[in-house]
């Protein structure tokens, strides 16, 4: 019985993850175009709003909008507009949350997922950054690797999950590798684009001042490509969150994905929501954190 359920779930999970990946894919290919309108938007906002700075106002809106959504949901469930079996009220979910926090379940599972996410991001992100920047600098390397990337990138990462399980087993390794694969592509693709967008005159300056290959790499290619690399990292972490949830639903004994899957098996809808909300919250916190990191490591982007 359970095996049939598993099979169903795999198909379901794969197709929904496929959709999510498609969106992430579109975002990855559109980052160049998207990056600039965003910047000009910020400039315009800064001019329009008189007293408060645009970034401060953005931060406040970022906090208020999810709270408003929760209030509406509570009302909708209590008044019977929503079916409480599928959409339990936020207050009920909150009770479950308190229980899961109290007995350590939520924290243990979140910690397990975070660790996998961290190691996966490191394992996928660092090589992607090195290889991407090198590809941006050296045409022959680009000629060799580009076809491989183009051929493998469109394959839904969730579709290779069985293969990864086969190779790396049911333990930690397969989860970390899944995250790594998800982080790898957006970082790589953005790093290549970022380096190729660097004005050639900067490379001439490096050459004229006798910068070694490694010095060109660290003082010109990486900082020059950093704005796009950061976009790649953001997309990669988003991808990693999607993939870790999927990976933990298959053959895992811990993690948020496991918690959600297990909640479905024991029909604890509230626990499922707690898991979903935790993942959403993680995504939100990662976005804030990465924006903050971006602000610190790209100080030259500051408007005058």
């Amino acid at each position: 019985m359970t095996t049939i359920r598993h099979a169903n779930l795999e198909v379901g999970a794969a197709s929904s993850a496929g959709e999510a990946e498609e969106i992430a894919h579109d975002m990855a290919t559109n980052t160049e175009a998207a990056a600039h309108p965003l910047v000009t938007n910020k400039v315009r906002q800064a001019r329009l709003s008189g007293g408060m700075s645009a970034s401060n106002r953005d931060r406040i809106i970022n906090v208020i909008s999810p709270i408003a959504l929760l209030v509406l949901w509570e009302i909708a469930t209590r008044t019977g507009i929503f079916d409480a079996r599928f959409f339990p009220a936020p207050s009920q979910i909150f009770d479950t949350l308190v229980t899961l926090v109290g007995n350590g379940t939520l924290w243990n599972n979140t910690w397990a997922s975070l660790q996998r996410l961290f190691w996966g991001a490191l394992l996928g992100g660092v090589p992607a950054l090195m290889l991407g920047v090198a590809m941006g600098l050296y045409r022959p390397l680009r000629a060799i690797v580009d076809p491989l990337v183009s051929a493998t990138y469109p394959v839904p990462k969730s579709a290779i999950m069985p293969l990864i399980l086969l190779i790396f087993g049911l333990g930690e390794a397969s989860k970390i590798v899944m995250v790594a694969i998800g982080v790898f592509y957006p970082v790589l693709i953005n790093a290549v684009a970022g380096v190729r967008e660097i004005n050639k005159v900067y490379l001439d300056v490096g050459h004229n001042f006798r910068a070694s290959r490694w010095q060109v790499f660290t003082t010109i290619a990486v900082p020059g490509a950093l704005p796009l690399i950061m976009s790649g990292i953001k997309l990669g972490i988003g991808m990693g969150l999607i993939l870790i949830a999927i990976a933990e639903m298959i053959g895992a004994k811990s993690g948020l994905g496991y918690m959600i899957w297990n909640a479905w098996e024991v029909l604890s809808v509230e626990t499922m929501y707690v898991g979903l909300l935790t993942i959403a919250l993680l995504g939100f916190l990662f976005t804030l954190l990465l924006n903050e990191i971006e602000r610190v490591i790209i100080p030259w982007r500051v408007q005058r």
Binding site: V201, Y202, T219, P223, W300
Partner: peptide, 10 residues
Amino acid sequence: FQGDSLFPWM
């Protein structure tokens, strides 16, 4: 160099 050639990130 003719025109802007300072590294914007430094």
